[in-house]
């Protein structure tokens, strides 16, 4: 998270999150395979895709000690070309909490490189999307615990 987005995205000035539910326009979600329920944590994925999710779990938000997966930034992971002898290509569909995030390139590069480094992945790309909009509702229970430990009341 960066900048004033923290306010817009439901964090009050005293560090607590507002309880107002932010509706997510799931029906507008046109990227990725089908209509994935969010937050997506990769639960139920298998093989190479599961390994990509596991790797992404190890990446933290640049400003807060919370996994980017638990923060709800990753909407989908899809690996193509897994047939015998194929070139495997991973596509990570993700969003950011704030449009003016100064760490956009840093973070998306880090995520792409991490995905490409996974055993069995030949190349990786990031698809950055802004719909559905990220909101506090996309933070997982584990993410909330991390944020509480950090001192945010969620």
């Amino acid at each position: 998270m960066s900048g004033r987005s923290d306010l817009d995205d439901g964090v009050r000035e005293d560090g607590t999150f507002s309880e107002e539910p932010t509706p997510c326009a799931y029906t507008e979600y046109r990227e990725g395979e089908g209509h994935t329920e969010l937050p997506n944590t990769g639960e139920g994925s298998e093989g190479i895709e599961a390994r990509v999710w596991e790797t992404l779990y190890g990446i933290e938000d640049p400003e807060m000690p919370v996994s980017i997966v638990d923060l709800g930034l990753i909407y989908d992971v899809a690996v193509e070309g897994t047939e015998e002898g194929g070139e495997t290509h991973a596509t990570v569909t993700m969003t950011l909490t704030y449009t003016g995030c100064p760490a956009r390139k840093m973070l998306t590069d880090e995520i792409r490189e991490a995905a490409a480094s996974v055993d069995g992945v030949d190349s990786a790309e990031i698809r950055l999307v802004w719909s559905p909009e990220w909101s506090i509702d996309l933070v997982t229970e584990r993410g909330r615990e991390s944020l509480r430990e950090f001192g945010l009341s969620v």
Partner: peptide, 17 residues
């Protein structure tokens, strides 16, 4: 136009302030 539609909500949410 899909790419406009897909991002305008995020912008609107950051403008009211």
């Amino acid at each position: 136009y899909v790419p406009i539609r897909d991002r305008v909500g995020k912008v609107i949410a950051e403008e009211s302030y």
